[in-house]
Nucleic acid binder design. Structure first.
Lengths: 202, 202, 202, 202
DNA sequence: TATGAATGAGTCTTCATTCAT
DNA sequence: CATGAATGAAGACTCATTCAT
């Protein structure tokens, strides 16, 4: 009896996920994936374009979710919200952040640390790029509303974004418990708020 | 006529450096290294213990220099110096920093982004670890001298170290010109100084 | 046009057999086997799990046949038969023995003398073990039927088994003609019968 | 300061012995031997002709001692002694036998089981050859003195020799304690004596 | 959609030995 | 007597992918 297409697709995906998590992109083997999924090796190529394709399927959703989440945190309406930042609000955001990280922890670990050789290589960089772009746009919005804001160099913004990227990576790598993360962010916001005011003058 | 040992050693090292820079650790090939250095493949093993050994020889000095430099920036005598921080001094340090990065840019790029699979894998993490340790010790010294300093969570210090790691990585990756880097650090110091005062209360 | 699977399987097996017989396990080369069988080296691994796997396929049947044959010679119903040993019967057995040895001579030569390094290494020992075990069981049966039989030390039985193993090895190695073997066994049976009676007292 | 020649020779020999015992002939490595003996790899070739040469030096004495011992047990004067065999005498011989095996156990283990590929390969066979030859000569002597002795086929004598070889191998392999060996030989002599009388008629 | 077979280049490392010095 | 360097072939095995069916 023939197994339905979607089942096979899923089973390949699941097997691939396991293999990638165990070995990383480079050391993962198509044979192993095929074997673990009970699908003929060559048939895998009917469902996916190749190793890289499977990898993208495994790891793409995490990437997309994270990118999307970040974009959402920097829409126009957030400008005011963040200005009159109530701590409570930010805590909520933090929890959302943690949720997304926990949900995709394995995938993010792959993306951050073991994607070399795949088209997803340089994820860290891409994430920093994305954050930088988004932050930049966001700052433009802010400046339109509060024109007194002083300028900050592009590289600094990038560095700040890179910091945030690094923080995410640290969380992914070391799995601190939720409370530790919250504590950290509290310190981070105070730190960043003070620093930012120093630089922008408000 | 036989070529002198040191020449061959150097030629292997040079060839290996090129190969690694071009391909990264994992994709580099011993065959290619041997070929490019004009040394018989098996003879390479008379000079180095293996692929990983060559890699360490290529990339180790950069690693050591950076680690050492960081340690030196956090000795006891630096506590006071940094307190009465004259900008001039810090600029010097920054230039030293930049020097070291530029000197070893290729190697650092390898260490940061393409060392997976080698014994140097996880360099980013190791660097952050080192910075964290050093910072921690440094803060202990500072606190001994200025006991009023408030405590900051370990994870925050680690995050700050990770930021610095990230900054180095950014510089390595994007090669901004010296002036841009100096500008960045000026902002960074103001930012960090304000933030730090906010957290520690002095 | 593609050659059928079984043909290739057989051709690999045959080539491997030749290579092993020529070189022994350790010195045999996968490359040579592949070349001689006209199959791509890597493709060999689609048919066999590896060098040891091929070796097992080459040599396993001989081993199994010999072991099985020995077991069969020591079943319960043989107890009485051997007691009232008619020479004619034993001659038949001897011929069966010789048949099996001649049929698998090359493989047995491999097993006895050139299996070092493979999972079939220690064949001589394994054969002696098997014979010892079987003889022991057989003697238990015999004793149940003829309780007067005196005991013989385990090591002696093992030594006797080892003798038989040695005899097989000698036959494999020197290829004496059938008549010489029959003559030998005639002497052997007289010798052993007398010795055995001396030890067991009947 | 130069180390004396003999010291180096001995140190190579000792190191080689260890390496061979650990790995067997085939898997032993000249590099490892050189390293373990503190002698330059190429210098080893000033003391020995090569791998096989060292092996012969390691293992030869054991071989010679055993061969010589066997020859000595079958000299002319032994004919009478063995005829009026007092058990006491034979026990002495057995102990000498055991002594020699224990003294050279490691080397004999090498010779019996791990010499494949070396010029000492086929030691088992060589030993059986030697025993056969010696036994044959011995029987000739015996027959000269006691002409009534019936003939026994060459192959049977060889098989008997092969048995003894096998017994030695068993002892080498399994290291039974001295008492077990003595017990075995007591059974063996009774067994063999009875069998032999049956065949030769006296 | 599925498969088993095939490819061909690729991996790092080890080996015993020799040679010039 | 000693050395470090060099050789060149060989080792087993894996890879992602393609193709004919």
């Amino acid at each position: 009896m023939r197994v339905l297409k979607d089942e096979k697709y899923e089973s390949i995906l699941k097997a691939a996920r396991g293999e990638f998590i165990r070995k990383g992109y480079k050391d993962a083997s198509m044979r192993a994936i095929a074997a673990a999924s009970g699908v003929g090796l060559s048939n895998v190529y009917n469902y996916f374009s190749g190793k890289d394709g499977i990898y993208a399927a495994v790891v793409g959703p995490a990437r997309d979710a994270l990118f999307l989440f970040i974009s959402r945190q920097h829409t126009e309406e957030m400008v005011d919200v963040n200005r009159q930042v109530t701590f409570g609000h930010r805590e909520e955001v933090i929890d959302d952040y943690i949720d997304i990280i926990e949900r995709y922890r394995d995938e993010l670990r792959l993306l951050f640390f073991r994607s070399e050789g795949s088209s997803m290589g340089g994820f860290r960089e891409a994430l920093t790029d994305h954050m930088t772009r988004v932050s930049y746009d966001y700052m433009a919005l802010e400046k339109k509303r509060y024109p007194a804001t002083a300028d900050v160099s592009h590289f600094f913004i990038r560095a700040l974004s890179s910091w945030m990227t690094g923080v995410v990576a640290e969380i992914v790598a070391h799995e601190p418990d939720r409370q530790r993360i919250r504590d950290f962010f509290r310190e981070y916001f105070r730190f960043e708020f003070a620093g930012w005011r120093e630089l922008t003058g408000n």
